[in-house]
Write a protein that binds this DNA or RNA. Structure first.
Lengths: 180, 180
DNA sequence: TCTGCCATGTAAGTTGTTACATGATTAT
DNA sequence: ATAATCATGTAACAACTTACATGGCAGA
């Protein structure tokens, strides 16, 4: 359900094409709700059919035509009522944790995986910190809307920090048990 | 893919029935790879067909018969090679963050949601801490296998702590902007 | 010339969710 | 009586992934 609403949320401020949305979902919103371009196009067709969004084809010279979508009144109402609904914390699905739980390999192999993940989380964190410095260096003076976006960014930073701390601990714990 | 392997991992130590597995997935492994009983039964049929596991029907008195599955040699190999594969950090999918990002409701409504989630995370954390005290009160003396399970528990604790800290910050930030 | 970006989609397959179905036993 | 637990599944649907497909334009 949330993909539809994440799209609505993205279209509230500015009309976007499917392509634009796919870009957006590869960053910003995509950091906490990933979606491929195929999913997005499919969802857009469905939303247009339902009348939650309206599309308008824009002819372009030198580039393929694009179709800009914006949210209809019905769409806005739908978004609002979805926002008012309760939601549960989303269940975790994590390969790495399944692997570690299984513990069916040499600790060495796991250590390598841990280091790969460490690198990935460090990179993600660096991206978030850059965004923070660029757009949110002064949180006190942010307008309401921006405060919400800032909160999601803080969540990302907190999340990556948690992972990095845990990985450190994990590496340490595995080392202590395997001195060789 | 990981469901199959999570099941294999669960069956490595002891043979279990679909029902038993469903119970397990509602706790322990389920904390980082959720699956419903329908999914589990479907996956079990598939795994048996592929020859990764072998099922044996056990007649019971007073209870319906059950089918115990154990991992075959092929299954063990599959699990091992999957464990050696690289995996990426799993993408986040979180309703609450989409809602906050959209910021399309009264801050009040969001504050209510935040408190609901706070409660849920507190409960989860309490469960983890209980497990820690019960089974892992002395991490130094744990055998290798148990160390891995302990690590996943630590991850859970770290994760819930991260959420709780973020929620505190979020509530605070929303309050400061809306004194009324 | 080849890579990458712009822009849109289809098709097939896997995974996950929701609802339905059965039937015996045990506890309230 | 009624509800809950044990135990197993089917069926329909929704969501997601992977691969394939097209075609022009800009830059190295």
């Amino acid at each position: 359900m949330a993909l539809a609403h994440a799209i609505l949320a993205s279209l509230i401020d500015t009309p976007l094409s499917g392509y634009d949305l796919a870009q957006q979902f590869d960053g910003s919103v995509g950091y906490f709700w990933a979606a491929s371009h195929q999913q997005i196009y499919r969802e857009l067709s469905k939303l247009e059919q339902q009348g939650w969004i309206a599309g308008e084809t824009v002819l372009q010279t030198g580039k393929p035509d694009k179709k800009l979508y914006c949210v209809t009144e019905i769409g806005k109402q739908q978004l609002k009522s979805w926002m008012a609904e309760f939601s549960e914390p989303s269940p975790i699905k994590d390969d790495l944790l399944v692997k570690i739980f299984a513990g069916y390999v040499a600790p060495q192999a796991i250590a390598i995986e841990l280091k790969r993940h460490q690198k990935a989380h460090q990179e993600r964190l660096a991206v978030y910190k850059t965004i923070e410095q660029k757009y949110f260096s002064n949180p006190q003076t942010l307008p309401e809307t921006e405060k919400f976006k800032y909160l999601t960014l803080l969540n990302g930073i907190s999340y990556e920090t948690h992972w990095l701390a845990w990985i450190d601990r994990a590496i340490q714990l595995l080392k202590s048990s395997n001195p060789k």
